[in-house]
Amino acid sequence: MAKYIFKRVLLAIVTIFIVCMITFFTMNAIPGGPFAGEKAKSPEVQAALEKRFNLDKPVGQQFVIYMGNMLQGDFGISAKTGREISQTIGSKFSVSAKLGIFAVLTAVVIGVVLGSIAALMRNRVPDRVIIFMSTLFTSLPSFVLGSFLLVIFSVKLGWVKAWSPTEQNLVLPVLALAAYPASYITRLTKTSMLDVLGQDYVRTARAKGVASWKVLFIHTLRNALIPVVTYLGPMIASVLTGSLVVEQIFTIGGLGAEFVQSITNRDYPMIMGVTIFLAVFMVTMNLLTDIVYKLIDPRITLD
């Protein structure tokens, strides 16, 4: 296990390095730059800025300098705002992550519970309703759902306050974020639960005299959740790093919004910072998923 993790971490470092390289060079290859903005600047200011951000040097050298600084934990400052990149990412991510964690928890709880109910009441009314709803929510784009939620519950009914920087009401954005993964997990759980319920070992458990609720929670659910766990890693990564669409609709200044903005701004240090952060995050989530997967399914060998 330790050996496996060590190997994976090495691999992750290589992956992240490659991501850095590709991002850095493509970013520089695209026409324009951080200071090719609307307002004309005097040649002196332009030159000074370019010098400050090493833009006067060849791209290769810039990359070496950047990587060198990064290894010392210095991600530089934003070419637009002048603020520390690491600070900006930290504060933006904390917003996205808070939303994301609630959304993930909501999605998992709703998905597993509804999926199990649908499986246990197969072909009866609750199953039909649950599957109809989950089909609906998987096919509804998040910008439609987000706008709907906002208009209906916040504007029309006034039940829930909309998000604002001072009053960060999580309910609506969490629902908008959780809807798709919740529906997906519902269907995943139902399918896999039905499969497991028909397995011989479930019958063995009953034949041993295990109470039916224990058969369900101990012998069935653990096996049924294996596919859900494999979906969890990528899902957590995508939800926690912020959904651009949902953040835009609810005007939440999260990482998703920040990333897109940094690209339109050609804010090179910011693009690099966010990219590296996302890459590290994804890689870590994948590794964690594999480890959890191994923990709940002993048949999996990590090698």
Binding site: D200, Y201, R203, T204, R206, A207, N223, I226
Partner: peptide, 25 residues
């Protein structure tokens, strides 16, 4: 009946490959 099963009367099945729960020792 739960006390009947496994205590008074036990059953073993046709396919041993699938009759044990794969995730428990």
């Amino acid at each position: 009946m739960r006390d009947f099963r496994g205590k008074r009367c036990s059953i073993i099945f046709q396919d041993p490959m699938t009759s044990l729960n794969p995730v428990f020792t």
